[in-house]
Simulated scan of single mutants.
Amino acid sequence: MNFAPLSALPKGALKILYEIMRHVLRRPVVGIVVAAHTRDGRWLLIRRADTGTWAMPGGTLEWGETLRSTMVRELLEETGVSDPVFERVVGVFSRPDRDIRFHAVNVLVRCEVEPPESAPAKERVNPLEIREVAFFREDEVPHPLAMGLSDLFERALAADTGAILE
């Protein structure tokens, strides 16, 4: 019996399979949440396809990645933004009920970005995940943010506070 390789599956199907495996393994996953802003104070958000609500970009680390390379990859894949300027780690958040899909340990980082010159490349963006990308002034940020991220966003706004461990 011949089976096609996993690489023959559509990218969206592979992501779903990956999510299922994390549930089966029942281990927390490490992720990064990126509070990205422009020099003029606009914040970068994505509209999630699954909930239709806005969130900060981010995702889980892949095998062999560093937090920094995950930040760069996720911003490029989800928003088309390249060359973020890392500012600081805001905190580490591990509340098990934050994400209904799995228990994630999220490292919240803050960075400065330039708006992308074009939309993210279609081959990079999973339409099952991201519906829209936009920049918002602080007073325009839609609340609540998806996946319980509103408190993380508020934490990222507090420029002079120390890092938090939740």
Rank of each mutant, 00 (worst) to 15 (best):
W43S: 10
V30S: 03
W63K: 14
W43L: 13
L61F: 05
D50V: 13
H37S: 13
I46K: 00
T38M: 04
L45V: 07
A49Y: 04
P28R: 04
A49L: 08
T53F: 04
H23M: 11
V29S: 11
M21D: 10
M56G: 06
D40T: 13
A55V: 10
T51H: 06
E62D: 09
D40Y: 10
A35H: 12
W63T: 14
I46E: 02
R48P: 08
V34C: 10
P57E: 08
R39G: 03
A35N: 09
R27N: 05
R27T: 11
V24S: 08
G41H: 15
V30M: 06
G58H: 02
W54A: 14
V29W: 00
R48L: 05
V34N: 05
L44W: 04
W43C: 11
T60A: 12
D50R: 12
T38Q: 04
L45W: 06
I32S: 05
A55N: 09
L25H: 10
R27D: 02
H23Q: 15
D40C: 11
G31I: 04
G41R: 10
P28A: 02
H23F: 06
A55W: 00
P57H: 13
P28V: 02
G59H: 01
D50M: 09
V24H: 10
H23W: 04
G59Q: 01
G41V: 11
D40W: 08
M56R: 03
L25R: 14
I46D: 02
A49N: 11
A36V: 00
H23G: 15
R39K: 14
V33T: 13
R22A: 05
T38D: 04
G58R: 01
G41C: 13
V24A: 14
L25F: 15
W43E: 07
M21F: 14
E62A: 12
A49S: 15
V29L: 01
T51N: 06
D50K: 13
W54R: 12
G58P: 02
R39W: 03
R22F: 06
R22K: 10
D50W: 01
R22C: 09
A36W: 01
W43T: 10
R27A: 09
H37D: 05
V29P: 00
R39M: 07
